[in-house]
């Protein structure tokens, strides 16, 4: 810690010393809230305002027409495949990194983080390079009547790619902080590896797991750039919700575009509500743990 300059010794203040004056507090709160309203609240309000511009009826028609339903279905499928896979990966990666010391650990950590800073456009492009007709596997796939890009598997792959780090990143610091004493004790008492994982580790990390899953899900359903490159935009077949928004927008159908967008915003809000709930649970558990 940096030393505190002692030169200015003034009489000790008799108010609460770790608080700012009310004016400063008010100004800071005001400043923070105006920044957030400008950048967060305004866009959120705009989505719902534009979506309901022509009333609820138009809104419901927009989100229940067949193409919108197909987009919802595809989005759910992609998330339903991507999340369990990333969950397994997250647990394995966190177990490796948090419970063991080995060389190259920081490189492995950076590699896990990589998909998160790779441009979504590049993420889509690499799958085109591999599975595209001009790519490595393209001709073979075509011969065997299989398609990856411009079909559901491509969208699933792109979704997995962009969400790989989410659960792992949530679990690694958590498991590092918890240490391995409990697991070691279980093993010494004769539990098998799987039993230890199932009865000791998982219960300890369940909230972190849920938290990571929620964020992973939000990102999976909202991904645009990567999915856009591999989708091919076939109506009713390879359009996810976020692509469907773009299509409606391009058809001068602004109200419908914002209606579908509001579904995604709603999803975001539900996600955030769930997350807050999980956080509250964690805090509750932590305080109970502290008191015992």
């Amino acid at each position: 810690m940096t030393a505190i300059p002692l030169s200015q010794t003034s009489p000790a203040p008799h108010k609460v010393v770790t608080q700012e004056s009310p004016q400063v507090r008010r100004i800071l709160i005001l400043l923070a809230l105006s920044f957030l309203s400008l950048f967060l609240l305004l866009p959120l309000v705009a989505v719902f305002f534009e979506a309901l511009r022509k009333g609820w009826e138009v809104y419901f028609v927009a989100i229940t027409e067949p193409d919108a339903l197909a987009a919802i279905r595809l989005t759910l499928i992609a998330a339903a495949i991507a999340i369990p896979l990333n969950l397994l990966f997250g647990i394995a990666a966190a177990w490796t990194i948090a419970k063991f010391e080995f060389r190259g650990k920081s490189i492995l950590t950076s590699l896990i983080d990589l998909p998160f800073s790779v441009s979504p456009v590049v993420a889509g492009l690499i799958y085109v390079l591999i599975f595209g007709l001009q790519g490595w596997a393209g001709p073979w796939l075509r011969e065997h009547d299989l398609s990856v890009i411009f079909a559901v598997p491509g969208i699933v792959l792109a979704t997995i790619f962009v969400t790989v780090p989410f659960i792992a990143r949530e679990l690694i610091p958590l498991m590092q902080a918890q240490g391995s004493e409990e697991e070691e004790a279980a093993i010494i008492l004769g539990a098998s590896g799987w039993q230890t994982l199932w009865y000791v580790t998982l219960p300890n990390i369940k909230w972190g797991l849920l938290y990571g899953t929620i964020l992973c899900n939000a990102r999976a359903m909202g991904e645009f750039g990567a999915v856009s490159v591999v989708s091919g935009h076939i109506r009713g077949l390879t359009n996810t919700l976020s692509l469907h928004v773009e299509i409606l927008y391009n058809e001068y159908n602004f109200v419908a575009a914002f209606a579908v967008a509001s579904l995604l915003a709603l999803l975001a809000l539900v996600t955030l509500a769930l997350k807050t709930l999980v956080e509250a649970k964690v805090a509750q558990q932590a305080s109970r743990g502290n008191h015992s």
Binding site: L33, L36, L40, L41, L42, P43, L44, A46, V47, E50, P120, L215, A218, R219, M221, G222, E223, F224, G225, L241, S242, L243, V245, E246, Y249, A257, F258, A261, L264, A265, L267, A268, T271, L272, A273, K275, T276
Partner: peptide, 23 residues
């Protein structure tokens, strides 16, 4: 407010783009 902070993680980027343009 605390919950809203994560909105940009969850909102699809295309929606963000269209909305910000509209604003």
């Amino acid at each position: 407010v605390d919950a809203l902070i994560d909105l940009p993680f969850a909102l699809p980027t295309s929606v963000a783009g269209i909305t910000l343009t509209a604003i």
